[in-house]
Design a protein around this nucleic acid. Structure first.
Lengths: 147, 147
DNA sequence: ATTCTTGCAAACCCTTTGCAAGAGT
DNA sequence: ACTCTTGCAAAGGGTTTGCAAGAAT
C-alpha cells in the first residue's frame, strides 16, 4: 500500500501530473476493493473517505490507474465494462457461468508460464493478461441434472 | 454457412422465437465479418443486404447470437465493447499493444488443452474461452530502441 | 387469429467535457 | 504566478425501449 502510493506518485511525476488528495483517494479506493468493481462502486468507496470527491474525478483518475498498471478493464455480464485491481492481486483467470452469471476465479502456474512462452515467441512484452472462460458451472450442471 | 443457419434456426425454435429474414440477415452479417466488429460495422454490413434493417434490430439480435454461441463479446481499446464471431473461427488469443493498439491474434494448441484441464478440474463445462494479453508489440519495442 | 418482431424515435444511462473556482508546484 | 485539477451540470454517444404497424406461425 505504501509501495503502491509511492509507485503511483512516481508515475504522476513522470507524466508531469500533480499529486492531489483526490487522486490518492481513488488509488486507495482501488486498493481496498477486491475483485471486480464498476465506476459506481469505486465512487462509493472513495466517497466514504471524502464525500466531496465527484464522479467526474473517478472517471478522470481511472485511466491514470489503468496506464500505471494498477487497474485493468474486464468484461462482465452483458456488455458491461468493469474494472479490477491489478497490482497486488495475484494473477488469475475467470470462469463465467452463462446460466447463473457467477464468476469463479482460478489460478494456474502452468498457464502463466505458457503465456510467457507464447509472448516471447512473438517478441511481445507482456504487461498483463486475462483469461476468461464462458460455460456452465458445476452447481448449474448439477441442478440441471436433477430437473 | 448452411450449417450455421440450420443451427441458428434450431436455436430459435427451441426458444420459441420466430425465424425472420432480419434475424437471418444479421447472422449472415456476422458470418461474413472476420475479426472484431462493433454494432455499427455489423449494421452497415447487414444493411448492404437489406437497407431497411434497423439499428434496433441489430441490438436485439446480437444477444440471441451470443446466447446461441455465434458471437462473443470482447474488450477492445479504452472501455469499448466489441464483438467477434465465434463459430467457425478458430480459437485464438489476442495480444493488444498498449502503444499502437494493434491486435495480434495467436493460437496455441497447448493452451487449449491446458484450459480444458483447468475447467475439468473445476467441474466447469467450457463453451468458449478468450485470452488477451496486454503489453508492447515487437514493432513498438524495436522503434523505442531506435529513439 | 394470435403472438412475435420490426422500425421509428424517444428515453436511458454511463461517460465525457466546458467552465469557473480552487489547489499544487 | 502559473498551470493543472476539481466539481458541477450539461452534453455526448452508444444501447434500450414503448408503440403501432407488419410478419410469422
Amino acid at each position: 500500500m505504501r509501495d503502491a502510493e509511492r509507485s503511483f506518485r512516481e508515475f504522476l511525476r513522470e507524466k508531469n501530473l500533480k499529486r492531489t488528495p483526490e487522486r490518492m483517494a481513488v488509488l486507495r479506493g482501488v486498493l481496498s476493493l477486491d475483485g471486480h468493481f464498476d465506476a459506481d462502486q469505486l465512487l462509493e468507496r472513495v466517497q466514504s473517505y471524502n464525500k466531496r470527491i465527484s464522479r467526474a474525478t473517478i472517471y478522470r483518475v481511472l485511466p491514470l490507474l489503468i496506464d500505471s498498471g494498477f487497474v485493468v478493464e474486464t468484461l462482465s455480464a452483458r456488455g458491461r465494462v468493469s474494472y479490477e485491481r491489478s497490482h497486488g492481486s495475484f494473477r488469475h483467470g475467470h470462469m463465467i457461468c452463462e446460466r447463473c452469471q457467477e464468476v469463479i476465479e482460478f489460478r494456474s502456474e502452468r498457464l502463466e508460464e505458457l503465456v510467457g512462452e507464447i509472448c516471447t515467441a512473438h517478441g511481445f512484452v507482456e504487461n498483463e493478461h486475462r483469461l476468461s472462460v464462458r460455460g456452465i458451472c458445476k452447481q448449474c450442471t448439477d441442478k440441471k441434472g436433477q430437473e
